[in-house]
Amino acid sequence: MTDAITGLAMLIAVPLLIGLLLGIDRRLTARMQNRVGPPLLQPFYDLWKLFGKERRAVNQAQVSFAAASVLLQFTAFAVFATGGDLLVAFFVSGAGNLALALGAFSSRSAYGQLGGQRELLQVLAYEPVLFLVIFILGWQNGSFLSDAFGENLLYLLPLALIAMVPVVLITMQKSPFDIATAHQEIVSGVYVEYSGTYLGLLKLGHWFELAFVFGIITLFFSADDIVISLLGKSLIVLVFVFLAVLIDNSTARTTRGDMVFKTLAFGLGLTIINLVLLWIDVSGAIW
């Protein structure tokens, strides 16, 4: 019973926290660029405004794909928040990304098409890494249920955590890897043909996706004391956001092939090294 209540509380609180996190992100970006930056609550204002705008869509399919995307991302996060299976959440979230790409394809605009293709390519680049990280997490933990994580895994899986950096960069749409939403190339890629409320829906879906990805990161750390545990988890998330902003502000955007290659090589490489190290350790080869 208490689990369900915690889950419900998380379901409401976490998206709010994500909004705040994005506010911090924008503020931090602005500070790094010698600017003042928007208020912390700016993402909420944006979302609020978008929901108040005129509802206008290119076609019906687009609306249904937007709805499907946000629902799937929400489900993925809900499965995660209520202590469900991580693998289920992972696949549902992947389906949400697919719906986003399909929505872009359905618009028939050239930029939408390009954005959709690039979105699929991004999925191809980061999902294997994310999957392997989830797999290694579950394997170490002995269970894939998100509420069964109570152990500190950070010292066992440090490399797998670092492998999450490109994944976070891609999902946060940050500079070297913001291929699908490249503002200066294809305007805003997958979002280009959406406006008003539907754009707001997609943004909300993106928040849930971020919540899921950041949720995975928080699983790395756990402590017996609930306060220390929460502090540690938020610290990891903040460090990741800071890193993402730092990398965003010190790199130019790479190209498609480069992104796939780098993310896969970096992410999979680190995770596999971690896996091998663990295996050696478990089999006692060192001792």
Binding site: A30, G37, P38, D46
Partner: peptide
Amino acid sequence: PRYDVERFG
């Protein structure tokens, strides 16, 4: 940076 209208969102 000098004018930075992102202050107003």
